[in-house]
Simulated assay, not measured.
Amino acid sequence: MNVTLWQTLRTLALALLVSTHASASRAHELNPAVADVTVTPAQVQLVVTLTAEAMLAGIDRTQNIDTDDLPEGDAYTRYREMPAEEMLQALYDAWPELRQDFNVLAGEVPVELEISNAEVLEEMPLSLPRDTRLTLLGDLPEGDAPVTVGWKAGFGPLVLRQTGGGEDAYSDFLNPGAQSQPLPRTGEIVTEGWLPLFGRYIVVGFEHIIPKGLDHILFVLGLFFFSLRVGPLLWQITAFTLAHTITLALASLKIVFIPASIVEPLIAASIVYVAVENIFGGRLGWWRIVVVTCFGLLHGLGFAFVLGDVGLEPSRFLTGLIGFNIGVEIGQLTVIAIAFLTVGYWFGNKPWYRKAIAIPASLAIAAVAAFWVVERTLL
């Protein structure tokens, strides 16, 4: 008993240390930038909606940490507190250096971009990021070399959409530092078949769980530590999957909308609930299935904030939605497989498994999620 208590205390201490780092990924989370690109024989135009303050402060968007914990945090706060006109002037002043981080190429030739217009779309409370829309123009060299678009990894992911092509026009979710597909200068619109699109969104969905979805990972682990028996685990995962598929579709199509400020604390609370029920030895009855289903509806709304940013045309939305959801499921099953191979296979049949592993792990999950609840509502 003393050994178990010591293990529990150690686990809780570790969880609190992790929570102070991991939970910050939600505190000041910045949405992916979205760029609409138009390519003509002589010019490329990018209309980019982004968080200019993070760019000006030099924040590395590939790190899931709170801006307050960074050396650049003070600079971000300073830019964020500036009136819109003053911040935009700072952006113009910094542009000769910032444009070097935009990787727009005509073949192998870099294209230099200039700001033709900049505007803050809407003033927000200081605790929230505000969006800036930049219209960037670049003259293309002679020839017909196609154009590729990207930017440095530190600016984070980029949702890129080709304009003027209707429902089949190319759109992509570019991971940090990635380049787009080649875009012709002949007026031809890049089209993408359903199979490449389907495969691409499987990857996007998987990455939203591993490595980006720490809260969803903890929820799935909460289901895993409830029971190692296949039946209870299968019932819970099935209920969770069906539920988040429904709200993912409805929210991504803008039929249902609940602000992230409401959804995110509720997701954290759902993690606390399943972990605490594990600790007190809840049984798999209709109530557990109902609760997991309700929490699945919440998590589907969380997934939709990512998928909705991509802006797929309606005729391609179903393909992207199905691919994204399959990627999410593969990610969840991967989490369960790793947990089983790490602890379930080796220790699941031991008489001390629940006291020494399942309960301490559930305590750790509950501690992290409880911190998130407080941090997402009060801090």
Rank of each mutant, 00 (worst) to 15 (best):
L298S: 04
L298V: 08
L298Q: 09
G300N: 12
G300D: 13
G300L: 12
L301I: 07
L301F: 05
L301E: 01
L301C: 07
G302H: 04
G302D: 05
F303G: 00
A304Y: 05
A304I: 08
A304C: 12
F305V: 14
V306P: 00
V306S: 13
L307I: 11
L307E: 07
L307K: 02
L307S: 08
G308T: 09
G308L: 05
G308R: 14
G308V: 01
D309M: 07
D309Y: 01
D309A: 14
V310R: 01
G311D: 10
G311F: 01
G311V: 05
G311T: 10
G311R: 11
L312W: 12
E313C: 03
E313L: 11
E313P: 13
E313N: 14
P314C: 12
P314D: 13
S315W: 02
R316H: 14
R316P: 00
R316G: 04
R316I: 04
R316V: 02
F317A: 07
L318F: 15
L318D: 07
L318P: 09
T319I: 14
T319Q: 10
T319L: 13
T319Y: 11
T319V: 15
G320C: 09
G320N: 03
L321C: 11
L321P: 09
L321E: 02
I322N: 09
G323A: 12
G323M: 10
G323Y: 02
G323S: 07
N325C: 08
N325Y: 10
N325F: 09
N325G: 11
I326G: 08
I326H: 08
I326F: 05
G327Q: 07
G327C: 04
G327V: 00
V328C: 06
V328Q: 01
V328I: 15
V328L: 12
V328F: 09
E329F: 06
E329V: 03
E329I: 07
I330F: 13
G331F: 05
G331S: 09
G331E: 10
G331D: 03
G331N: 06
Q332M: 09
Q332V: 02
Q332T: 02
Q332G: 07
L333M: 15
L333K: 08
L333R: 12
T334F: 13
T334V: 12
T334K: 07
